[in-house]
Nucleic acid binder design. Sequence first.
DNA 1: GGGCAACATCGTGAATGGTAGCCATGCTAG
DNA 2: CTAGCATGGCTACCATTCACGATGTTGCCC
Lengths: 336, 336
Amino acid sequence: MATIHDVAQRAGVSPITVSRVINRSGYASQETRERVEAAVAELGYVPNRLARSLRSKRTHTLALVLTDITNPFFTTVARGVEDTASDAGYTVIFCNTDESENEEKKYLQVLLQQQVDGILLVPARSAPDSIDLIRKQHTPVVVLDRRVPSGVEVDTVRCENELGAYQLVRLLIELGHQRIAILSGPLGVSTAEDRLAGYRRAMREAGHAAEAQLVVYGLFNQASGAEMMRQILELEPRPTGIFAANNLIGIGALHAMQEAGLRVPEDMAVVSFDDLPPTLLTSPFFTVAAQPAYEMGQRATQLLLARLTGDASAPCQEIILPTELVVRQSSGQPRG
Amino acid sequence: MATIHDVAQRAGVSPITVSRVINRSGYASQETRERVEAAVAELGYVPNRLARSLRSKRTHTLALVLTDITNPFFTTVARGVEDTASDAGYTVIFCNTDESENEEKKYLQVLLQQQVDGILLVPARSAPDSIDLIRKQHTPVVVLDRRVPSGVEVDTVRCENELGAYQLVRLLIELGHQRIAILSGPLGVSTAEDRLAGYRRAMREAGHAAEAQLVVYGLFNQASGAEMMRQILELEPRPTGIFAANNLIGIGALHAMQEAGLRVPEDMAVVSFDDLPPTLLTSPFFTVAAQPAYEMGQRATQLLLARLTGDASAPCQEIILPTELVVRQSSGQPRG
DNA sequence: GGGCAACATCGTGAATGGTAGCCATGCTAG
DNA sequence: CTAGCATGGCTACCATTCACGATGTTGCCC
């Protein structure tokens, strides 16, 4: 492996001059530049970023720590992050925590050791601990998708979860449903909690009783969605409307209903948080509160890059993006 | 930022001893170990991997260069890679090339500068150039999903594309279809070429004429699938069977057919390469040749790790995994 | 034309944080 | 008494860039 010294020797200059030519920093005469470039080409020299970063204290690498990249919502977020970062000359490392605090800690440790310039975090649970860990290394961090406990000062990009959920449940109510169940995400995850709050507000405002058995908790995935739905199907009388707290839960619920021989929306109406990208669907079916996933990734990355290049001490921002109510078949027609 | 020297000073030992305690290499007495660990905790010391890697020439980082992470096939491959790499203590960097040779070169340059230990590559086009580039830095590489020109020696993991395509088209023929169109991927991409070859073999064996207009070329995405399908719908008489060369093309084709008021499979039968993960589908519909995506990621990573830890000079392997024919509604009933 | 500021061009030496290689010492066991 | 293990320090080195300085050149003013 050729080093900068080899190039310097071949070009008859000092290593620092080679460095200046490569990085276009400082001065270099036309002739020197050409000699250096020739030497680089002849030796097939590839600069060593480790050494460069060690000295310059900049790795030009960001990290995106999320719960599950196979969830299309996060896949889209990830594209938003990558495109934005890439344009600014940054590389991105992705990590899946599977909602485990432990995995999150482990990954953060590794990322900090790698000296990433900044971290985008979708916190699994106890965000404050993780933020502390990151802050101790003076690494900028932006929290994505989820809320942090009040009092914790950190840049955040997320959606109007409470309102989006409220609108979805409100829609079911306007269609004439009274017994509406929620298949919620895990307790302790802010998006799950906020969506539950939106559900409760809509139900309360409509004067519907708060039945504890209509609220089921599970994980943000398809298997759990099916499991929760099976539980709901045991109830007597059955609810007529279902609010799935995310896209995968919605799909799982649908599977469970198909198993039980129920038709949607004729037998039961379903609404769900998160849209699926049209590129993946044969025919869009779910009535949803769609989050601007790509934009979330974009905005969060912009915020992070601003911290890196600008003043690190500016007051923290909390960007809250709107969701869009998209009505399709799964919510059905008004009930008689 | 505390360095290993700070920890050493605090613990009253030399830096190398701290290093030994942290990496569990060499000897350290119980008492020394405890003093060091206490100092590490007190100072919140985080080892600098850049420095470590610079010296040890190992970054414990792999790179996965693929064309589009939003394609669920690649998302699943990526999970297979990440899980396997993570278990072995490696971090993975993902890069999207969007089928562009240029993007691929740019990313490879950066990755080599980062001194990644190994690269998993889904080559956009001219694999040999990229492989040369990587090999020049003595970095191990495994090619995933796609074939390289014969004569190029490199580890490969891919599927039986020709056979999978053959079986799909054969199925349509057995169902009584005679005019079958193929919505192919880009020329120059081996998976597209092999699937086209499978289509041709099935048609030839059945004695069906090789009509040039039944073969359309496009990109491996949904927009292109819809576009190709619109072209096919212009034909007189229309084909009765469609073979989509990948999942996204299939979805795009379906959209175009819905636009045109056609029903699948009643008006036209459709088969497609690549399955969509059941966690994403409300009701699986497509008849497909399913690739073991997760396993592909896994096997490729194992191969790469073997190169890293074992003999780098072992003969190259070519692992070819079978596809599975999954018959669902989209291919329809036998035609009268 | 002398003086001087400002810029252009490049090099020297040290520093970045950690570990490989080698060596020194003490202790135990045969 | 010596081999060999347990323990841990010293020195150099990894590849690059920062801080600073040296030298030459240009332009401008009086």
